[in-house]
C-alpha cells in the first residue's frame, strides 16, 4: 500500500524501457502520466469538496443537504456540473470577449501548476524543487490576476467593485502569509517541501510555530476568498463580485477553482505545519499519502467550519486587521524565531 503509486510509476517506466524507447521519450511519457494523475486527483477532490461543503454546511445548519442523486446524494456535484455544461454561456455586450472567455480557463492554471511540486507521500513528488515553497507561493498568487481579469472584462460595476476588492485583499494577505512561512523556513533551513516535511520528523512545526500557523490559517482563508473574508464574492453586497456575469461552464470553472485553491492552501498547511505525510504516533502501517489526505481534510473541515459559522467582515476592517495585526505579529514571530534558533544553536543543550 505504502508504495503503490511509486511502484506503479516504476512499473510503467520499466515497461516503456523494455519496449526499447529512447530515455527522453520515456521521461516525457512518465511525466505526462504523473501530471494527468495529479489532474485527476485534483478534479476528483474538487468534486468531492463541493459535495462535502454542502453536506457539512447542511449539518451545521440543521439540514440534511443533498440526498437525491445517488446514495447520500453523492453524485450531486456531477449532476450540477452536467447541468452547468448544458447551459448557455451568456456574453454581455461591450465586453472584451477574448479575455472574458479566457479568464475561467486561466483560473485553473495556478493551482494546477502548483500541485507539481507538492509531495503527496513519501517519494511521491513530481518535481522535487529546491525552492518549492517559493514556487508554491509565487504561482498561487497568480490567481489574483485572473480574477481581476474576469471582473474587469465583465464590464459590470459589481464585478469592478469585486475585482478591486480582490486586488486589495489578496495582495495584502500575501504579505502575512509569506511572513508566516518564513518562520518555518528559518527553523528547517530549507525551501524544499520534502525537506521541510522530513525536518518535522521529531516534532511538528505547529508546536514550534503556533503563531505562524494561526497567521497562515487566517491569511489562507483570505487568499481563498472564503468567509469571513469572502468580500470578493460578498453575495449580499455585490452579488458575486467578479463572477456576476458568468453563466454556465464559465461560472462552474470559477466555482470549482475555489475548491482547488482550498485544497491547495490546506495541503500547504499540512505540509508546513502538520508534518505532511509523516505518520504521527508511529502509526506507519497506514500509508503516508493517506496520512497527508487525512491532515488536508482536517484543515479543509476547519475552513468549512469557519465559513458556516462566521459572518463577513467589512473591507476596511479586513485591511486594518491585515496591516495592523497580522503583519506586525508575523514580523515579531520571525524575530522571536530567529532569536530562539540562535540561542538554541549557541547553547546546544
Amino acid at each position: 500500500m505504502e508504495n503503490i503509486f511509486v511502484n506503479a510509476a516504476g512499473g510503467i517506466r520499466n515497461l516503456l524501457e523494455s519496449a526499447g524507447l529512447p530515455s527522453l521519450v520515456v521521461d516525457i511519457s512518465i511525466m505526462t502520466t504523473i501530471f494527468v494523475a495529479i489532474l485527476v486527483f485534483v478534479l476528483l477532490n474538487v468534486l468531492w469538496l463541493v459535495y462535502m461543503e454542502r453536506k457539512v454546511s447542511a449539518y451545521i445548519q440543521c439540514r440534511i443537504g443533498p440526498n437525491r442523486v445517488g446514495p447520500m446524494g453523492i453524485f450531486q456535484t456531477i449532476a450540477d456540473t452536467v447541468k452547468l455544461i448544458s447551459k448557455e454561456i451568456i456574453i454581455p455586450k461591450n465586453t472584451n470577449k477574448k479575455l472574458f472567455l479566457l479568464a475561467p480557463v486561466m483560473i485553473f492554471m495556478p493551482p494546477m501548476a502548483v500541485f507539481a511540486v507538492t509531495p503527496f507521500g513519501k517519494g511521491m513528488v513530481a518535481l522535487d524543487l529546491n525552492i518549492g515553497v517559493y514556487y508554491f507561493v509565487a504561482l498561487a498568487s497568480l490567481s489574483t490576476v485572473v480574477i481581476w481579469m474576469a471582473g474587469w472584462t465583465s464590464n459590470n460595476k459589481y464585478s469592478l467593485l469585486g475585482s478591486m476588492r480582490v486586488v486589495a485583499q489578496m495582495v495584502s494577505y500575501e504579505v502575512p502569509l509569506l511572513l508566516s512561512i518564513v518562520g518555518v523556513v528559518l527553523l528547517t533551513g530549507t525551501m524544499n517541501l520534502t525537506g521541510i516535511i522530513t525536518a518535522q520528523q521529531s516534532v511538528w512545526m505547529i508546536f514550534l510555530q503556533p503563531v505562524a500557523f494561526l497567521i497562515y490559517l487566517i491569511a489562507a482563508v483570505a487568499e481563498t476568498n472564503r468567509t469571513p473574508f469572502d468580500l470578493v464574492e460578498g453575495e449580499s453586497e455585490i452579488i458575486t463580485g467578479p463572477f456576476t456575469e458568468y453563466s454556465g461552464m464559465g461560472f462552474a470553472f470559477f466555482f470549482l477553482a475555489e475548491y482547488a485553491n482550498v485544497l491547495l492552501v490546506s495541503m500547504l498547511a499540512s505540509i508546513l505545519f502538520l508534518g505532511g505525510w509523516l505518520a504521527p504516533f508511529g502509526l506507519t502501517f497506514i500509508p503516508s499519502w493517506i496520512w497527508l489526505l487525512l491532515k488536508v481534510y482536517l484543515v479543509i473541515f476547519l475552513l468549512m467550519w469557519f465559513r458556516w459559522t462566521y459572518p463577513r467582515t467589512r473591507i476596511d476592517q479586513m485591511m486594518a486587521f491585515c496591516w495592523k495585526v497580522l503583519v506586525p505579529l508575523a514580523i515579531v514571530n520571525i524575530f522571536v524565531t530567529g532569536i530562539g534558533k540562535y540561542l538554541y544553536e549557541s547553547v546546544r543543550w
Binding site: S236, W308, P311, R312
Partner: peptide
Amino acid sequence: SGDVGGLTGFIY
C-alpha cells in the same frame, strides 16, 4: 444575519 454574511443564523 444573512445580510452580514452569516447564513447559518438565517436557517436557525
